[in-house]
Structure formats: C-alpha cells, structure tokens
C-alpha cells in the first residue's frame, strides 16, 4: 500500500506523525515529509488511524 498526500489540503498539523511516526514527519517549515513510500504491515494500523485523524482529510492509501 502506498500513501498519497494531498499537498494542497495538508496544513502540517502533525496528527499523522503522532499516530504513525515511522511514516510521517512534519519539518520545521510545517511541511509533511513521507518517511516511506510503501507502508509495512506493522505500520498499516497507524496509517489508517492517521487517515481518519487528519483534520484536513489530506491522506489516503492506494494499492
């Protein structure tokens, strides 16, 4: 599974980082960095929570 970020929606709030720190990090400028392209099985749960938790609905998963 691959993570897709809608850059025009993301405002760098970082909720995704707190739910799946292996996959997301917000940098000092408030921009979201994807730490991995593809999600490992063990991170999948956290990424799903991040998708649900993102206030701007900027994240989705693609096969």
């Amino acid at each position: 599974m691959k993570i897709i970020v809608d850059r025009s929606a993301c405002t760098g709030l970082g909720i995704c980082e707190s739910l799946a720190p292996n996959c997301f990090e917000v940098d000092d400028a408030g921009d979201l960095i994807l730490l991995t392209e593809t999600v490992s099985d063990e991170d999948l749960d956290g990424v799903r929570q991040a998708i649900e938790g993102c206030p701007t609905e900027a994240l989705r998963l693609e096969p």
Binding site: G14, I15, E17, S18, P21, E25, D27, D28, A29, G30
Partner: peptide, 15 residues
C-alpha cells in the same frame, strides 16, 4: 511556537 517538527515527538513521549 513554530515548532511543528518537534511537537508530536513530545506527544509520543508523554503518551
């Protein structure tokens, strides 16, 4: 204040 890259790391520590 303007510490976007730091805040969630502390959230994880507190959790």
């Amino acid at each position: 204040l303007n510490g976007q890259t730091q805040i969630m790391k502390y959230r994880a520590l507190i959790m």
